[in-house]
Design a protein around this nucleic acid. Structure first.
Lengths: 232, 232
DNA sequence: GGCAAGCAATGACTTTTATCATATCTTTGA
DNA sequence: TCAAAGATATGATAAAAGTCATTGCTTGCC
């Protein structure tokens, strides 16, 4: 695909992981990067492979997931504007532990391994930022582990709906600005598709959410927080 | 408690996170650190607090856990010789997300926040090592998430037993060199204590493990791998 | 516009896991 | 060394979640 026009500015994108770099460093990165795009459903990186670079999402939505037993996807988290894909395995020097697939048409920069490491070595502050990011993710992963281990399916579903709302926000009509199948929701919650469908119906009857086709709207946030046992 | 003799050398301990530092840097750290020790059962850092430094375990075994609903512990991972406690929240500048408690008498160095950051800033290689560490942990956390979400209790128990064996090794008699109650094992596996007890009995009957009191020995590793769906 | 494919919804039933109750074994400390 | 506390073991039962089968709804495509 050709270089899209908006890619010229993507490193400076406000939320980009690279946004704090000096102009010099950004200029250099711009020379080294490639602009790429992925259609909805396209795999960006694949579990088990050895990464040769990182992707910085400029615009789009991506799911990060591992394949569990019986080929069932487990969605670990979502990646959106400004965030990186593939840095984990590059930095830990391991095979890619989670595949990434575009949930909608997605535009990204590709930065080759060597350039990425060069930026890290020459910009201690950037390196520290990555460290901060990965440590934050570690905390989030810990929370997810505790939820999966201790909460029941309904509690987890309520939690995930709140996470989706916080991550992707709402459209003009109040629906979550992300389109997921019930199966994908089940693959985040860690349960069977039918269970998610049943519980979504239940939450709807109780008046805490509404839905139309695959689109879901959170109508009572604090009720969901209570169901999910989130006190904040 | 007084400075134990062996603490003189703890930074140079072969497996220590700090072992690759230059001698100068290690000397400086030695002046800044304090040696501390914890009795079995003592809390080292507490969820929700703001950390003022990191601990580097010289000798001992520590569990890292978050408190879930109803005050139930969820053990995230174990920390042992050479590994750090508290670096995650220090680096992400967040409250401590997981408590740490000594599983046996434990000796550690305490490095104040300012000194820790000084080492990071002055030693890019060390910073990169931390980055590598945290990225590795992220991968491990992802695996744990997938297991909890997709495997049943018996599969997860088999997996945890293998992890314990890999982490702590065996004593002269072949027992896992870590003493955990059935409740603690349940708090790793993410299930009820009774379920763990039942399944340990089952694995014993099937001849894959043996046990004597709380001590457990893995007798058929590949059978456990098969049960846990681990192919490596 | 209509048809096929994929997705969502729901009921019936099974399996897994949790909970409660109680008994027995280990450990620890006076 | 013995008693009490704490841990382990096991059975009975209940609750939660998974699986299978079927129907109906959306959506996208010719």
């Amino acid at each position: 695909m050709e270089t899209p026009h908006h890619c010229q500015m993507c490193l400076s994108h406000q939320k980009s992981t690279f946004s704090d770099l000096s102009n010099d460093a950004k200029d250099e990165l711009s020379r080294l990067k490639t602009c790429v795009s992925f259609r909805k459903g396209q795999v960006i990186i694949h579990e088990g492979a050895r990464p040769q670079g990182v992707y910085c999402i400029h615009r789009g939505k991506v799911k990060l997931y591992t394949m569990g037993t019986e080929g069932k996807e487990q969605i670990i988290r979502f990646i959106t504007n400004g965030e990186l894909i593939g840095y984990r395995s590059l930095l830990s020097d391991e095979a890619i532990s989670a595949s990434a697939t575009a949930l909608e048409d997605t535009f990204a920069c590709y930065i080759p391994k060597s350039s990425f490491f060069k930026v890290i070595e020459e910009n201690p502050k950037f390196s520290l930022k990555l460290l901060k990011m990965s440590c934050h993710e570690l905390g989030e992963a810990g929370k997810m582990i505790t939820s999966l281990a201790q909460k029941n399916v309904k509690e987890r579903l309520a939690e995930i709906l709140l996470i989706l709302r916080a991550t992707f926000g709402e459209d003009e009509e109040g629906y979550l600005d992300i389109s997921l199948t019930r199966e994908e929701i089940a693959n985040m919650v860690g349960t069977a598709t039918e269970s998610v469908i049943r519980l979504i119906s239940e939450l709807k009857k109780e008046g805490y959410i509404s839905s139309k086709g695959k689109r879901i709207a959170v109508s009572d946030r604090s009720a969901l927080q209570q169901i999910a046992n989130i006190f904040e």
